[in-house]
Design a protein around this nucleic acid. Structure first.
Lengths: 292, 292
DNA sequence: GTATGCGTGAAAATTTCTTTCCATATGCGC
DNA sequence: GCGCATATGGAAAGAAATTTTCACGCATAC
């Protein structure tokens, strides 16, 4: 492991004096276009540097590699490390917590889930889905499963403030057919389905799709079968060291969508917030905010 | 050339529904550690993803590559482009999103909120609160406000799997007195209150406290007045560039608490999960999970 | 001028990787 | 419960890569 951490570049510098003329030719070529010049097969690389394959093979051995594949792998690892960026993975968020504390382990898993989820969002699809959700010419239906019912509820509360014409389909699937009856082309169905995927939701999605309803699906990384009929699907990474799945990334995607819809309909949304504020005031349901 | 510019990640997204179970397994593995997981030889890659080489070969063809080498090359090119590109693109956060895209702005705010929230958790208090929530000698009551009702609902669903003796107090505050009537010393009340703080919740908390109920409060950074009577309070950072507050950090704290309770009561919890599983099986409410 | 030794690359030998074929397993509809 | 369709991985064939061998060229020393 002692020599494992030095870069190929450093190895070349270190052994340069021991290299022969052709080998130096190849070394120069590699450094010229580092490290991409070394990423093809030995045959291709050798040809491009205008030396023979044995020359390259001998040289990488001089550099301390067992063979060309090992050399190739080393370059790859370097490149990968570069992309990963500063290795300061936010490991210690819960700064006060001891190393192995649950909070830290949990945080690490969550961070990774959020990263993965975001990396896998197709921006164009996100924008299109936001536009669909913002389209108030049709109704917006919300529905979730056993676990995600709470998310659908949360979505309902927020979308209510952002746009009119919303229906929260209760989790009692017996009543779903009644809702489907009123669905029409141009309507939107925002559907949550994480494992274990529920057959009822799939049937609902199929019925809705058949009526020309656009479906936005928020699911997990293993993709609910509803994705088959959904117009827009988003995968959220949900694994945590636990018997159940985390829905933090799911929630994040939901909030991001709400924010996007809000931004899109801002002119109208603003007015709604003001009216909502006045209504709260009128009903005296809520106390004055502490700040702001 | 028309299809040359889309990333492998996008290809996977696009074709995911057409993939079989094993192929998805490989796809998931690749996305998990992208793109390095796909850079070894097909044999190695397949073995690490625990699928057969033919599966991988078939899949890359489905993605539109002629063969594995072409797929391999595409990943390599992506990686190179990434390195060549704008020097320090921030890690993997929504890597495909343009700089000023809402997704990126949103993510930044969320990251900050999570950091702040975690930095402000007192580990000892967290552990103590978890112990309180895990104490099944008393009842556990759950309640939330207008917005946080959804979180209380989510908490209810999960705590149900983890421990017995739970009561979800519905948001209709008219019925709260009935619940209070049955509260006794040794019971626990998990209460969510974020701005705008609700007078009803405060009164409920006072009544419960008077009856000797231990109160765990999850609130925002400005602290609900309920904190006065709560035994344990946690502040979650909730500000995002939007007219409303984000509850992602709130959700995170909640999930962390659930995880902590689960870990604490694991012996009993495990049995509950198994029974739950059997009940699901019996009611046939749910489809078979895709994986695991 | 000849002999010696090192560097070099063509080509063979070998290893490794990729693809194809096929038997088995698995799930699904009837 | 049966038969069909599809998915899966073992194994072999085929392809490509890497390594080794070896003969030649070239420089240097005597």
């Amino acid at each position: 492991m002692s020599t494992a951490n030095i870069t190929v570049r450093e190895r070349i510098r270190k052994h340069f004096t021991a290299l022969t003329k052709s080998e130096r030719k190849f070394a120069a070529y590699l450094l010229e276009e580092y490290p991409s010049a070394g990423l093809a097969s030995i045959t291709v690389v050798a040809k491009q540097a205008d030396v023979s394959t044995p020359t390259v093979a001998r040289m990488v051995q001089k550099l301390g590699f067992k063979g060309f594949p090992q050399f190739h792998q080393a370059l790859l690892t370097e490149l990968q490390a570069k992309v990963q960026g500063p290795a300061e993975r936010r490991a210690n968020w819960a700064s006060e917590a001891p190393e192995g504390h649950l909070l830290n382990r949990f945080t690490q898993a969550i961070t990774r889930n959020l990263e993965q989820t975001l990396a896998n969002v197709d921006t164009a699809q996100f924008d299109a889905a936001a536009a669909q959700l913002a389209d108030i010419s049709g109704r917006l239906y919300l529905v979730g499963g056993r676990i995600t019912r709470a998310l659908a509820d949360y979505a309902f509360t927020h979308f209510q403030a952002v746009r009119p014409r919303i229906t929260h389909m209760t989790s009692s699937s017996a009543s779903w057919p009644h809702y489907v009856l009123d669905m029409a082309a141009g309507d939107t169905l925002l559907l949550f389905d994480v494992r274990r995927y529920e057959a009822n939701l799939q049937r609902l999605a199929e019925l809705a799709a058949a009526r020309g309803v656009r479906i936005v699906l928020i699911t997990d990384q293993w993709l609910s079968p509803v994705a088959e009929v959904a117009d827009y699907s988003f995968s959220c990474w949900v694994e945590i060291p636990s018997a159940w799945d985390s829905n933090i990334s799911t929630m994040m995607l939901l909030e991001a969508l709400i924010a996007a819809v809000e931004e899109r309909n801002w002119d109208e949304t603003q007015g709604r917030y003001e009216r909502l504020e006045q209504l709260f005031e009128a009903t005296r349901l809520f106390q004055k905010p502490v700040r702001q």
